[in-house]
Design a binder for these strands. Structure first.
Length: 121
DNA sequence: CTGATGACTATAG
DNA sequence: CCTATAGCCATCA
């Protein structure tokens, strides 16, 4: 698999992370079909153009903490963007139990099909 | 080719 | 919770 392709897949996965939720670098790599590619995800996001529509701020490390450096206001920027969509961030930390993205579960909760009978959660 | 680098991660103390 | 350490892997000088 070539580089451009890998980055495209990574961006595609990140674009799928819903508002108000976060995913880890490793998780994004896995979903993109790139085993042990967590670092590559970071690299790919780092290379995103400033005007990109990719929600890079919804990606944090496995511990649920912001990996961007405080210097340059990068971390602050990510924190602000997350809070803007309802994610609680305290001491550059996010509760994954609450905001972590669970693709399969979210699929059920957000795109419920055949609820004509059950109609509720 | 070689060694350094980093928006990573799991593990141990 | 924190630091240290060791794997990890595409890029880059």
């Amino acid at each position: 698999m070539n580089a451009p392709d890998r980055y495209a897949r990574i961006r595609a996965v990140v674009r799928d992370i819903p508002r108000g939720r976060v995913a880890s670098y490793g998780q994004v790599a896995e979903l993109a079909g790139i085993a042990r590619g967590a670092r590559q995800v970071g690299y790919a996001l780092n290379r995103l153009p400033p005007d990109s529509d990719v929600p890079w701020h919804r990606v944090v490390n496995a511990a649920g903490r912001i990996s961007l450096p405080d210097a340059g206001g990068a971390a602050a920027e990510q924190t602000a963007r997350l809070r803007a969509e309802g994610v609680r961030v305290a001491r550059r930390r996010i509760d994954l139990e609450r905001y972590g993205w669970r693709p399969d579960l979210d699929e059920l909760l957000w795109k419920p099909r055949g609820l004509d009978e059950a109609g509720e959660r």
